[in-house]
Design a protein around this nucleic acid. Sequence first.
DNA 1: GCAAGGCATGAATCTACAT
DNA 2: GATGTAGATTCATGCCTTG
Lengths: 261, 261
Amino acid sequence: MEKYFSTIIHGDCIEEMKKIPDNSVDLIFADPPYYLQLPKGKRLKRSNGTEIIPVDNDWDSFESYEHYDTFTHAWISECQRILKPTGTFWVIGMYHNIFRVGTIMQNLGLWFLNDVIWVKTDALPNLNGRRFTNNHETLIWSVKSKDCKKYTFNYELMKKMNGGKQMKDTDWIFGLCRGNERLKDENGIKAHPTQKPLKLIQQVILAASNKGDVVFDPFMGSGTTAVVAEALGRKWLGVERDEKYVHLAINRVKDFIAKKV
Amino acid sequence: MEKYFSTIIHGDCIEEMKKIPDNSVDLIFADPPYYLQLPKGKRLKRSNGTEIIPVDNDWDSFESYEHYDTFTHAWISECQRILKPTGTFWVIGMYHNIFRVGTIMQNLGLWFLNDVIWVKTDALPNLNGRRFTNNHETLIWSVKSKDCKKYTFNYELMKKMNGGKQMKDTDWIFGLCRGNERLKDENGIKAHPTQKPLKLIQQVILAASNKGDVVFDPFMGSGTTAVVAEALGRKWLGVERDEKYVHLAINRVKDFIAKKV
DNA sequence: GCAAGGCATGAATCTACAT
DNA sequence: GATGTAGATTCATGCCTTG
């Protein structure tokens, strides 16, 4: 286990998790593919003619709900296995996928503590006036099983961060990841399509882990979990399937450590 | 069909829906049992010693997730059948049940428009400091199938009600049903454990139906959907299994009509 | 240097119509 | 019916240019 810490493993998360012992991580944060089912190749345009770049990456493509469910069941059951009885497991998603994710979690015996709503402050408006603006994502917060009562939750810290009042599942109000925080490629284009804001992950890690705890992320992407865990003195470990993102995340963490020292 | 309008049918909603023709209702609002899985007989107490009355009614008891799913699949597939291609179907729930409900809806081919968050302004605080305050419920808004594009949505009205800006899925901020609005029995105790606020149902009906449309509610409970539909000039129809609530709702609607005239 | 305004852009299940 | 093209539509934020 120890040899792994503070590294991003390039590989399939299910295969890599199989190498991790039972009951060995304190906190899991997972940002899996959402299976958006957007039409391939079609681009929505703003009135000024600029295009909206959708998430139509290969990693978000599945043949059917059934295929998505099989994949989801596989990685979630590994997460459940490696999670300590005192640990907690977070998954983020949207209405496209979160209901399926939640059902599979319950079927596996994971026990829900909350469904937390990340309310966005600067989401893309609905461009055709046929729906309500899609302005939030949902985080499911769970424990390994119903009888896990002694999980880590820094209630008082959350209360303090919320101005002295008990933090609610709807008090998670953050902007999207943009500006200088958003990683860009050599052409100035966003380097990862779904980079999450530091503040969001920070709140998760502060709420549900302590210094020295092991934080695991099966879909490391641009490495936000790694940077926040490193900054907050947690041990961490991540898996990422796409080599391009592995390099992105490793460099990001290196940069962060270099600037800190 | 016509003979049914503006009535509350006493019976099992699945059996009663079977009598309703295909493609015949414009809007369905459903507030099904949440399957809270609270321990029977246990009562939480406030610090002043008073008891919190939980929802532990028989209608919320199921043997297992599987039984809940079977029941859910049955009533939702009937709703899908009776819904017009131009109509929309709303279901409200919490983290205990909404993920299962959403998965079953997707499996049946219902297509999601939004998941709307009802943010409460006066929810019960978390009493033991082991979770975030549970401050919202989730409404899934859907159409009969993916290809139903011409559904009713009063976009401009919603925008106007939201101060001239596009209404978001997180702009649904209402207090709980309390005070004079909350129905009481002869002893002054709440007459129905989960009575929904008028404002919430009003926003649903205003958003997704027009005058003269048919609104259906398979779990009528205290009759909130009936009262709002009546007030807004919609035709309506409801089913309720518990005879006590049927009488409650009928009297409530009668009172409402009497006061209006 | 500072204020004002221009402009780019965000996990998006788009709609209507013609062929 | 399936497929392709044109069209209408939006809000908050932050960086950058201009004055």
